[in-house]
């Protein structure tokens, strides 16, 4: 039996991303972004705080954890179990809707508007104010970003960028708020049920797949070991202007 509550509730650590930067770009409004993707430990504490039961339950709209160990949370017989050695893995197998629900819950804890970043906000943050191709520079450092792996590695495995953010390039893709829009025969088509992904993952190899400006997308209900997410907390001072 997994111990349900841990001693202190883990919440994401945030770093400030300024509005406009040396490259002249930027979203016009500063924001706070998770230093690393939301971890297994943080997501587990959320699940426990939201659940009335002894152990959190499966919820296919929000997450689809595998029955076997390896990604930190397992689903056995409809009940979730924590693998305590894997608290620092980025939480994966969480759908876009599950990631949104986590953001809403966190927003209530913080008293701030909390959501997934847009792809543009993510790119701005990952570019470090200088429009870098990858999170830490304009050269693709494969051993650093994308060592050979068949699963996620713990968060914080790469150094901080100029905004104090880690792990933007590589390890797991990160859900963004934006819906996929594709070119149809008669113009752009949305409503396809997919959302944008950023950052690359252990499942891809091509350096271009990891570039800050590259976006992929996946079905909103996707639950896989190579997609996680990080939170964006809006800047209250600016938002109230």
């Amino acid at each position: 039996m997994t111990s349900r509550m841990r001693r202190t509730q883990a919440l994401p650590v945030l770093s400030a991303v300024p509005a406009t930067t040396a490259d002249g770009g930027g979203p016009g409004t500063g924001f706070w972004l998770g230093v690393v993707p939301v971890t297994v430990g943080e997501y587990w504490d959320y699940l426990c705080s939201a659940a009335a039961d002894p152990a959190p339950r499966a919820d296919p709209r929000a997450h689809g954890f595998p029955p076997t160990p390896g990604v930190g949370i397992r689903c056995v017989g409809g009940r979730l179990a924590l693998d305590a050695a894997d608290l620092d893995l980025p939480v994966t197998h969480v759908t876009w809707w599950g990631a949104r629900a986590y953001c809403s819950w966190l927003g209530e804890q913080l008293g701030r508007v909390t959501r997934l970043p847009t792809a543009a906000e993510w790119e701005h943050a990952a570019g470090g104010g200088r429009g870098l191709r990858w999170a830490l520079g304009d050269a693709f450092d494969r051993p650093l970003y994308a060592p050979e792996a068949d699963g996620p590695r713990p968060v914080g495995s790469t150094p901080s960028n100029a905004f104090g953010l880690r792990d933007l390039t590589g390890n797991v893709f990160e859900w963004c708020a934006d819906e996929l829009v594709v070119d149809g025969p008669d113009g752009p088509v949305g409503g396809l049920g997919s959302r944008l992904l950023k950052g690359g993952a252990f499942t891809v190899r091509n350096p271009s797949s990891f570039e800050n400006t590259t976006s992929f997308s996946a079905d909103e209900l996707t639950a896989v070991p190579y997609i996680g997410f990080r939170v964006l907390v809006e800047d209250a001072a600016t938002a109230s202007d």
């Binding site: 499966a58 919820d59 296919p60 709209r61 997450h63 689809g64 197998h93 759908t95 068949d150 893709f173 996929l180 997919s194 992904l197 499942t203 992929f216 997308s217 996946a218 079905d219 209900l221 996707t222 639950a223 896989v224 070991p225 190579y226």
Partner: peptide, 23 residues
Amino acid sequence: DHMMIDCVDPGFFVHRAAGFVLR
């Protein structure tokens, strides 16, 4: 397993909580 099939767009399969789903 997930190292043998990719379910990022574009593609004909997605992987949800219940497993692989043909679109």
